[in-house]
């Protein structure tokens, strides 16, 4: 299901949108990702994945008035949709399921 699949980076971006709704535009999202994961992301990558999320229907967007540091240009502010929320929850549920499958002994064995 390519259309609704959530890529790793997309998941990250979407999580930021959910976590920081007040700062959910491309530059701020990139900044947050930098803060959280210490990953230096290029703006175009963030922008592209936001576009993809939009296409998949996980986010909606709205143009907001720009600030002086943007040279007056307005910005696109994103908001998660119900479908986006569900996708995040699905991913989390899958991960949890897998985490739960791992017995503490197994963990030791792997590292051992």
């Amino acid at each position: 299901m390519k259309g609704t699949n959530l890529g790793e980076f997309e998941e990250l971006v979407l999580l930021v949108v959910v976590a920081r709704p007040e700062d959910a535009y491309s530059v701020a999202i990139a900044r947050t990702i930098l803060e959280v994961s210490n990953r230096k992301v290029v703006h175009s990558v963030v922008h592209a994945s936001l576009n993809r999320l939009n296409k998949k229907g996980f986010v909606t967007s709205e143009m907001k008035e720009g600030t002086a540091e943007r040279g007056g240009r307005s910005k696109r502010v994103y908001k998660v949709t119900a479908a986006g929320m569900r996708a995040l929850e699905d991913v989390k549920a899958q991960r949890d399921k897998l985490w739960n499958m791992i017995s503490p002994a197994g963990l030791v064995k792997v590292y051992g």
Partner: peptide
């Protein structure tokens, strides 16, 4: 254009 150009300006001025 506004979104992208604005973002790039933001980085630039930062």
């Amino acid at each position: 254009i506004d979104d992208v150009q604005g973002a790039l300006y933001e980085y630039f001025f930062e």
